[in-house]
Design a protein around this nucleic acid. Structure first.
Ligand code: MN
Ligand code: MN
Ligand code: ZN
Ligand code: ZN
Lengths: 144, 144
DNA sequence: AAGAAATTGAAAACGATTTTCAGAAACTAG
DNA sequence: CTAGTTTCTGAAAATCGTTTTCAATTTCTT
C-alpha cells in the first residue's frame, strides 16, 4: 500500500493541508531506518532542509501515527520512537541494551496465549507491548 | 524475606545512613497498594508526615529499586510507578485503559516461547516487559 | 487575485524527574 | 558523651523531552 497516498487521503479527510515540509518529512521517514526519535529525524533532515523546525518534525510524526502509517514505540530510553507501518503485520521487539540493536519478531503462539490470559480475566485486549531486553549475539560474544 | 532487613543491609553495604524518613517511606510503600507513582506516595504520606519532601520520596523509591525491593514500571501514562517485590516471582500486567485497573498474571508458556524466540536470534534475554492494554470486564460491560 | 483557514518556526511553557545547596541528622572515633 | 566527618533532607532551581503559543507564511477555495 502506498503510504504517501494514505497520508494524503488522511489530510483531505481531516481538512488538513499538504505542505512541502510534510512531504519532505514523510519521504525521509519512509526511507530511513526505523525506530527513529524526533531528534534523530530532525538532525537527519537538517542536512538537506535546514529550514524545517523541530516542532514541525515532531508534529508531523504524530500525524503519521494518527493516520496509521507510523507506530509509536517506547523502549525505555526516555525518547518516543516512530517506525513506518507497512502492512497489517504486528511485531514485537528484541532490544540489545549494549549496542541498541533492535530485532523484530512475530510469534503467533505468544499472541494466542495472551488472548487466553485475557479471557481468563474477562479482559478485552486492545493492544499490547512485548519487549525482550538483553544482549545480541555480537555483544554477548564481546567482553560482557 | 523481610524487606526492611534487606533494605537496611543494602544501606550498610553502600555506606548509606538509615534515617527516619527512609523508614517511614518504606513502611508506607510496603503497606500501600502497588504500582504507585512518586506523586501518589508523596500525597499519601503527606497526611501523617507533612515534613517529608517530594524529592526525598522519589530518591527513596529509586533506592528501593536499586536494592531490589521495588520494581519500576511504566504503563504509558507518563509516570514511573513502583511496586514492592516480594519473592522471586515475575509477573506481567493487564491494564484497563478506561478505569486504570491493573491485573497481574504469570504465564510460564509465554516466558518459554520468549526464550525460544530469543534463542532463534542468538539473543540473551536479561529482562522483559509484557503489557496487555484494553478493557476490564466491568468497563467492557459499561457503554464503551 | 483575494479571503479564509491551516501551517510553520522560534521561543516559551509544560510536567515529570533530577540536581543543587545550605542546614540538619546520623554515624565514628576518641 | 562529644566533636568531627559524612550523608541526608527539603525547597527551589535546573533538566530534558515534549507540547503549546503566536505572528508570519502558505495552502486552497472562490
Ligand atoms: Mn519495529
Ligand atoms: Mn505488578
Ligand atoms: Zn548488541
Ligand atoms: Zn476498567
Amino acid at each position: 500500500m502506498d503510504q504517501v497516498k494514505l497520508f494524503n487521503e488522511y489530510l483531505n479527510q481531516q481538512g488538513l493541508k499538504n505542505t512541502s515540509q510534510r512531504m519532505v518529512i514523510l519521504e525521509a521517514f519512509l526511507a530511513s531506518d526505523s525506530h527513529l526519535s524526533t531528534e534523530e529525524l530532525y538532525l537527519q533532515l537538517r542536512a538537506d532542509h535546514p529550514k524545517i523546525g523541530y516542532a514541525t518534525v515532531h508534529r508531523t510524526l504524530k500525524l503519521f501515527a494518527e493516520c496509521g502509517i507510523a507506530a509509536e514505540r517506547n523502549f525505555g530510553d526516555g525518547q518516543t520512537r516512530f517506525e513506518p507501518v507497512h502492512g497489517e503485520e504486528h511485531h514485537d521487539h528484541l532490544i540489545c541494551t549494549k549496542c541498541g540493536l533492535i530485532i523484530e519478531f512475530e510469534e503467533p503462539q505468544i499472541e494466542k496465549l495472551q488472548e487466553s490470559v485475557a479471557a481468563a480475566h474477562h479482559f478485552t485486549i486492545k493492544n499490547h507491548r512485548l519487549e525482550l531486553y538483553g544482549l545480541c549475539a555480537a555483544c554477548a560474544a564481546d567482553g560482557q
